[in-house]
Design a protein around this nucleic acid. Structure first.
Length: 282
DNA sequence: CTTTGCACCTGTTGGC
DNA sequence: TGCCAACAGGTGCAAA
């Protein structure tokens, strides 16, 4: 479910409501998700939350003694509930706070991750190859060009590679390429300098706007407080197959790339035909 | 080394 | 109504 804007929405809520609170008890119901879960029921009690951070799609709940690393996979979420609410299916962790309310981690598909890390977070192997934060200055057209301009892969699957840029997922990859007017099947090594510049600004603009809207709620994303995201109403292409493009009116098309669906406008995002790859011709 | 295909899970949806 | 295949916001690893 959550890509960068959704995780950032969760982070902002927790930064306001969780920092400073102490975890009195932790109840762990599950041994493993995508990876084995450490004994958080023994680790977390009596620790006070000092900060809540985000790296790409990872949420970091920081304590002086270490960091709880969370990833939400496709279906993970956090929700706050009173003490007396019965545990529901696929709840994996309860963090009981001093007022007896509980912060619950729930993940039906179990693609998420719960880990504990002591020491500098950047040293964790999960983050060793993680690409730059898209909203930082590190993400520039020079960076994109340097990483990608020799790659023989299509740009859309490349945008999903977290080693390239941290935090972009399937919704925002399509939305970003639409705003940059780049066809999802364009090969990275055929993208022009001017297009990398367009791409950088599309990345920043789409993600910034999506964060302001509280993320996208397609099926079931809700923030910790149950708040739905609103960015789905601004989706130009995602899940809009055969609906008219908001710019040119052409029907939006879907395309399967590496088992993942991409959406694009055939009028605005032109794929150069073979033999017309932008090289000089006479 | 780079690039692709698939497995990992469960729930929901849509066609017959 | 019921059944079953297809699909869903992600990632890691095996294979080509």
């Amino acid at each position: 479910m959550p890509e960068l804007p959704e995780v950032e929405t969760i982070r902002r809520y927790l930064a306001t409501h969780l920092v400073g609170q102490t975890i009195c008890r932790a109840l762990l119901y599950t041994k493993a998700l995508r990876r084995p879960i450490p004994a958080l029921n023994r680790i977390l009690p009596h620790l006070a939350v000092s900060d809540v951070r985000r790296l790409g799609k990872y949420l970091l709940i920081c304590f002086d003694q270490g960091t709880l690393i969370m990833h939400f996979g496709m279906s993970g979420r956090l929700y706050w509930t009173p003490n007396n609410v019965k545990r529901s299916k696929h709840d994996h962790l309860d963090m009981v706070l001093s007022d007896n309310s509980r912060l619950r981690y729930n993940d039906p598909r179990r693609f998420g991750v719960l880990l504990w890390h002591v020491g500098a977070i950047n040293q964790h192997s999960l983050f060793a190859k993680l690409g730059p934060e898209p909203l930082s200055q590190q993400l520039s057209s020079c960076y994109l060009y340097g990483f990608a301009s020799a790659k023989k892969t299509a740009i859309k699957p490349l945008l999903l590679n977290q080693d390239f840029i941290a935090g972009i997922g399937n919704i925002y990859a399509s939305e970003i390429l639409f705003r940059a007017r780049i066809h999802p099947a364009r090969l990275a090594n055929n993208i022009a300098d001017s297009e990398w510049v367009l791409l950088v600004s599309a990345i920043k603009q789409v993600l910034k706007t999506a964060i302001q809207a509280g993320g996208s709620s397609i099926k079931d994303f809700v923030s910790v407080n149950g708040q739905l995201g609103a960015f789905q109403s601004q989706h130009a292409v995602y899940a809009r197959t055969s609906q008219p493009c908001i710019i040119c009116g052409s029907p939006i098309q879907a395309l399967l790339q590496r088992q993942r669906i991409s959406f694009y406008c055939p009028g605005c995002q032109i794929l150069p035909s073979a033999g017309c790859t932008g090289q000089a011709r006479h």
